[in-house]
Design a protein around this nucleic acid. Structure first.
Lengths: 357, 357
DNA sequence: ACCCCGGGCTAATGCGTATTAGTAGCGGAG
DNA sequence: CTCCGCTACTAATACGCATTAGCCCGGGGT
């Protein structure tokens, strides 16, 4: 049975893909010559045009494709870019956050002649090292293990993180300008005439969260918007938004004069979800009674609801920018594109003038 | 000269990582021994426990990590699976058809220790040959060029097509069981009490379309459901559904006693879109006046509308099945999983009993 | 005393490609 | 006719690891 099968395979043709040596044999030249012709002959060794043609023809005929591992081992280039995501692939959560990046990454990579290798972080430990198979790698996800990245970066491996990553010196990154985008949202709320606002954030110290909060604060200072009266301050940090952000809480703030509620976007969308529920539970409606804003995009399952006022993260653009930066590192010349990408304000339908204006 | 060069290399730090040879030196053993200890020694060569310890200690001390490229070169495998999609990656169109497959593919691949290489059909000509860099490849999209695939298959390259593909002998494939799923939808319509039904399909001869039609016909025969009276038959083929499926047409069928309208799903969703518009234009409502069913999932932009009665293609599961089949081919042992994956009936809200029941 | 055996290790080689150091052949300058 | 230099190649080697085929040594059998 097994014999039968393997015989079939042998009979069917060559085992595995053709090597340079086979191309060489067919073209009647040496393996070196094949390598020179197909590798672009950067060292400028003289070659007859006709020889070149023969080699190319033979390669085409056999369907030759270089082995990335061998190429890499010989200290050359693969034309492969890695994409490493740390979030284990969770269809639902991923649907709205991972894929759009990938679209941008893929387009930009294709445009520059690179193919993509997807590494998924499920496996533990040295899994990160796998990426060395590619010429360089993009890392995405909030929780990339610093130790592994440190290692790669120190070894001079070209790596670009999608999302701000300052604490890891030497690691290149591209990120969305959450500070400015968040500030802009608050400015719009102020322009509507709101006087008091709160920000609901999850208990997460990722740069993406702190940046949003910073933008929020900056715009408060700039516009004169205030938080609720009292010492609590305008920012609410909820480890479990569903529990912390209740109808009672919303009503309490509302009675204190808060007319604008802002939530940050996270993987789960928990803050926004809780806010929507609590406002509804409090018998308030947006944008009639209160204005709601989301610093980011709503979770996929709320796609049917009216679009929240807020901003859109240009994920595809970010992915493309990351590829540009990475290929810049590979070429060791370009200064790369600027790391911050602007977000687009989204008017949406959940914010408007406060009641009585 | 050679000395000089190697010194440069050290100075440059381009390769700062320790090799097995260095671990070996530190532990006072040979590189072979290091490889045996760290590689798990599958060949069962006798090794002193103390030697083992020394090697492990040395490896730890130097922070040794194996070079994946070298590893793969030596193993003549690279643990890469290709995914080749022919539809150029168009963010919008792709969002709902390409990505869900990928999710399943990725999970199953990760579970089996494979990484993924993404190829996009955008590049011209011999682009197909690129996939040979992976150990095997998945192909997806209705319009995969037969010639290129033929070539790969004949060479014994492990390839699996996602979607039925019978005409290409020797090509493995996995597909959704559209025949049974479509039949089931019709059975449900019959159970509601409908007596006459039509199927609107686009002018596309892909297996996915003909399978749906076959299921439709089979269930008609089985349940006694009929098409409209006259010679036209129960299936309407519209090259341009927006033009062919009009309000007048719907009203015409309705007056002939047709109470159930079924559309097939295609990339664009044109048939379903046209049907919805025409029914509305005819002043009819579903499921009150007529029942509508969609053989597949609605296009992404109609996600807000009531869920159509129909079935869901288990895309992720299909992707996973494809990976299983492919790894089966690679191992040359497993019989692979069965090629047909069942679809899940979706009750939805567009079908019910016909008026007057 | 000799051989064999098996435990413990290593030298040698292969994987496929890129690069470096040549080598043949030939025409022209000296 | 020698030597040079140029063109058009090729042989050899490195890359880092896995694997195969040994090698050496001590003890037990005969």
């Amino acid at each position: 049975m097994t014999e039968n099968r393997s015989q079939q395979r042998v009979a069917k043709g060559r085992r595995g893909r053709p090597r340079q040596a086979e191309v060489a044999r067919l073209a009647g030249v040496s393996q070196t010559t094949v390598s020179l012709v197909l590798g672009g002959n950067k060292q400028g060794i003289a070659l007859h045009a006709e020889t070149r043609e023969r080699v190319l023809e033979a390669a085409r005929e056999l369907g030759y494709v270089p082995d990335p591992a061998a190429r890499r081992l010989a200290a050359a280039r693969n034309n492969l870019l890695g994409v490493f995501s740390f979030t284990a692939t969770f269809p639902t959560a991923v649907e709205h956050s991972y894929y759009p990046f990938l679209v941008g990454v893929e387009q930009e990579a294709a445009a520059r002649g690179f193919d993509l290798v997807l590494f998924t972080g499920s496996s533990p430990g040295g899994a990160l090292e796998r990426v060395r198979l590619a010429d360089g790698c993009l890392f995405l996800g909030r929780h990339a293990p610093a130790a592994g990245l440190r290692r790669l970066v120190d070894d001079g491996y070209p790596a670009v993180h999608i999302g701000r990553r300052d604490e890891l010196a030497g690691l290149a990154w591209v990120g969305a300008d959450y500070v400015d985008a968040s500030a802009e949202v608050v400015r719009r709320l102020a322009a509507f005439g709101h006087r008091r606002a709160v920000l609901v954030r999850e208990d997460d110290d990722a740069p993406a969260s702190t940046d949003r909060e910073r933008g929020f604060h900056e715009a408060l200072a700039e516009t004169g918007l205030a938080g609720p009266p009292g010492a609590a301050g305008p920012v609410v940090r909820a480890a479990d938004p569903a529990a912390g952000i209740t109808a009672e809480w919303v009503r309490g703030r509302w009675e204190e004069g808060v007319t604008a509620f802002v939530a940050e976007e996270t993987d789960t969308g928990a803050a926004w979800r809780a806010l929507l529920g609590a406002v509804e539970g409090a018998g308030l409606s947006a944008p009639g009674d209160v204005s709601l804003a989301l610093l980011g995009s709503p979770p996929a399952d709320l796609a049917g609801r009216p679009a929240p006022t807020g901003f859109d993260i240009p994920r595809a653009e970010l992915g493309a920018a990351a590829v540009r930066t990475l290929t810049g590192l590979l070429a060791e010349d370009g200064p790369g594109s600027p790391p911050l990408v602007a977000c687009a304000f989204r008017a949406g339908h959940t914010a408007g003038p406060p009641p009585g204006t």
